[in-house]
Simulated scan of single mutants.
Amino acid sequence: MINESALLESKTLRDSVLDRTNVLDRVKALSLLPDGMHVTTAMVATYFGVTTEALRALVHDHRAELETSGYRVLAGTELSDFKQLSGIQSRTRSLALFSRRAVLNVAMLLRDSETARQVRVYLLDMECLARAQPAEHTASTDSASLDARIDQRITHILGKTVVPMFNALIETSREDRRELIALRAGVQRIERRLHQHHARLKRLEGLRDDRPAIGVMAAMDSMNGRSFEQHVARLLRRDGCTNVVVQGGHGDRGVDVIGLTPGERRLVVQCKRFAPYLTIGSPDMQKFIGAAKVLYRAEVAIYVATCPFTPEALHIAAEAGITAVHRGLLEEWSTGEPLHVLE
């Protein structure tokens, strides 16, 4: 069996296993930025348990290889656009970003990290297992892998190109808004089915990974209250809501976001970015009901939280017609699942 240190010395060997990025989450949970695709230098250093200075030194020594794997530095307009789209708060003039492939590449170059060593051992175990499979099985696996890559490519195009195109059209169109929203919903259903199909393929191939998609929630946990309200507002606009205004803060009268649903119903939202071990209780829910129904006369009222609701709070919300978006539902909404109360 190849020793894990061989990855430190052989770029050819490193290149041969760069697609196995799933090992990162199998060894240790890797938090992602809100775009679900990148991490910063500090986040990579935390994952591997090293200093940012050590990581920057490694990047300096292997920059060309890491750039091939997806490492890049944003500045100027590109950085401004990325901040706006991802919702991150940073005053730096440049921002280094690592893709998951680049993080895996770091694991194969970083000597003084136990996490990196575990990743290398795991990679070579998988490679040894793959080489031990019969030729027939390898051929069928290659075919399934090709199908899976095609599915993932289609899903990426739908999620990153087609759906944003519909979002832009919905925001600017008046006459065809309902038809565009219906078409976007159809595209999102196809995208979800492809995701489900890919998950079934992974289970059938024995590549189990039961971890949740932690990147989105980890990003929200790192937001401040205002950033979280802006994130919820972006989700509302994505789903066709109009006149969306973030008014959270002093004097908001118990409501953080207001707007109109795609069907022109009055909408109010309360946003609570609490630690996941806390809960939203019945007093909080009762206060929101009073603000939503009495002060704002809302037709649609949503309480969004990064933590669970108590059973009593959920019971009160159901009786009053309030939609309670708990942590799990918030993750689904943030990753593309539409919020049905808005339809």
Results as ranks from 00 to 15, higher is better:
Phe309Trp: 09
Arg208Val: 15
Cys128Leu: 05
Val216Glu: 14
Leu329Cys: 00
Thr323Leu: 02
Glu343Val: 12
Arg120Glu: 10
Pro276Leu: 06
Cys271Asn: 02
Gly248Arg: 08
Gly248Asp: 05
Gly328Leu: 06
Ile316Phe: 10
Val44Ala: 15
Arg131Cys: 06
Tyr47Cys: 07
Gln84Tyr: 08
Val44Phe: 05
Ile157Trp: 09
Ile157Cys: 09
Lys83Cys: 07
Asp81Ala: 14
Met108Gly: 01
Leu30Lys: 00
Ala317Leu: 01
Thr279Pro: 06
Gly76Glu: 09
Leu58His: 01
Lys293Cys: 03
Leu33Trp: 06
Arg111Ala: 07
Gly159Ala: 08
Ala6Pro: 00
Ala102Phe: 07
Gly251Asp: 11
Leu129Gly: 07
Asp19Asn: 12
Gln188Ser: 14
Leu30Asn: 04
Ala320Gln: 08
Asn167Arg: 15
Gly259Lys: 01
Leu74Ile: 06
Thr52Asp: 15
Asp35Asn: 13
Leu8Val: 11
Ile170Lys: 12
Glu264Leu: 08
Ala199Gly: 04
Phe288Ser: 05
Pro134Tyr: 03
Leu342Lys: 07
Ser94Ala: 13
Tyr122Gly: 00
Arg100Gln: 12
Thr77Val: 14
Asp221Asn: 13
Leu342Glu: 05
Ala102Cys: 15
Pro134Asp: 06
Met165Glu: 03
Val325Gln: 05
Thr323Cys: 05
Ala313Gln: 04
Asp221Pro: 00
Arg20Leu: 12
Asp209Leu: 11
Thr261Glu: 03
Leu79Ser: 09
Asn224Leu: 00
Ile2Val: 06
Arg266Asn: 08
Ala320Gly: 02
Asn22Tyr: 07
Cys128Asn: 10
Thr115Ile: 15
Ser69Lys: 05
Thr138Asp: 02
Leu207Trp: 04
Ala75Arg: 15
Ser10Leu: 06
Thr138Val: 08
Arg56Glu: 14
Glu343Gly: 14
Ala45Gln: 10
His340Leu: 11
Pro311Asn: 09
Arg184Trp: 01
Gly206Asn: 05
Ser86Val: 06
Ala102Ile: 13
Phe288Arg: 07
Met126Tyr: 01
Arg203Glu: 15
Leu278Ser: 11
Thr310Met: 05
Leu260Lys: 02
Leu79Ile: 09
Glu299Lys: 10
Ser173Met: 05
Asp112Val: 04
Phe98Gln: 09
Ser145Tyr: 00
